[in-house]
């Protein structure tokens, strides 16, 4: 027994060590963003942001472009999450709870679409958006993002729907609930972790997306945050890169995502299903 405890302790140390290595780039962004450029230019790195200040952040948002990009990114991302959740949930329901003609073709199509190289489509997407007047338009970008994220989200949700045993629903129906009631009262609450996970996935995809946004959001006023950050780095690189300011800009793009993640993190753990079956 004590030997088992010892190996668990060793594994725990290993896990924490790996965690530290993995998180280091994120920490480094945090650390550098508070340090003045004079400190960052020394050959010996400074590992703790003591004596740091918010000057880099003030400098990064000084021209006001950041807030415009934030508004665009938030609108596009939240619209995408809402659209994806509704569309993908219905799709996942269809393929995991119903047998129907064309089901296999539909699944095959999803798999194939998931493989389409985005880089090979953006010229065509640009042409399409420009012909229907949706260039530099939040709706246009949302449509492209939703379509890009839906196939994988259906896959994800399908796993969760299939993970809730149909016998739970059947048991409820034996107890007198209708099929719809059984679904809404029994299965749907158990799917919450799946919906949260899918929503997080869609949020990240839309918030982080760079290539498609670069092509269809060509005007300065319609830039999303990743585009703003790239422009910011490019502008800084024309002089000697001001890493402190660039890291502060990266922080501004990454921090909303990180906060969002920490909020939903607990809900993503899914012990709910196995607990329900046990009882």
């Amino acid at each position: 027994m004590s030997r088992k405890k010892l190996t668990t302790a060793l594994f725990s140390i290993l896990a924490v060590a790996i965690a530290l290595v993995w998180v280091f780039p994120v920490y480094w962004m945090f650390n550098s963003s508070f340090l003045p450029n004079v400190v960052l230019q020394s050959t010996t790195p400074t590992f703790l942001p003591f004596g740091g200040s918010l000057d880099n952040f003030k400098a990064a948002v000084a021209d006001g472009k950041f807030f415009g990009a934030l508004a665009i990114s938030l609108t596009v991302t939240l619209s995408t999450v809402a659209a994806v959740l509704i569309i993908a949930f219905l799709g996942a329901l269809a393929i995991s709870r119903f047998k129907f003609k064309g089901r296999k073709s539909f699944i095959l199509a999803l798999l194939l679409i998931q493989m389409l190289p985005a880089e090979g489509m953006f010229i065509a997407q640009y042409k399409m958006m420009s012909s229907v007047g949706l260039l530099n338009n939040i709706l246009g970008l949302t449509i492209l993002y939703t379509a890009a994220v839906v196939p994988f989200t259906i896959w994800m949700l399908r796993g969760f729907v299939a993970g809730v045993p149909a016998e739970l629903e059947e048991a409820a129906m034996v107890d007198g609930l209708s099929r719809t009631q059984a679904f809404l009262k029994i299965t749907f609450p158990l799917l919450a972790p799946g919906l949260v996970a899918s929503g997080v996935y869609a949020f990240l995809q839309a918030w982080n997306e760079f290539t498609v946004a670069l092509v269809v959001m060509t005007e300065d006023q319609t830039k999303t945050l990743p585009l703003w950050l790239r422009g910011f780095v490019q502008a800084s690189a024309t002089r000697e890169t001001d890493w402190g300011m660039v890291m502060a800009a990266s922080m501004l793009v990454a921090v909303p995502v990180i906060i969002f993640f920490l909020i939903v993190q607990g809900k993503m753990s899914s012990g709910l299903v196995s607990g329900a079956v046990k009882g």
Partner: peptide, 15 residues
Amino acid sequence: LQVSMLLAWAMPVVA
């Protein structure tokens, strides 16, 4: 370990 993974995963590609 999970939080560090989430942090790395959460990082926007450009950042």
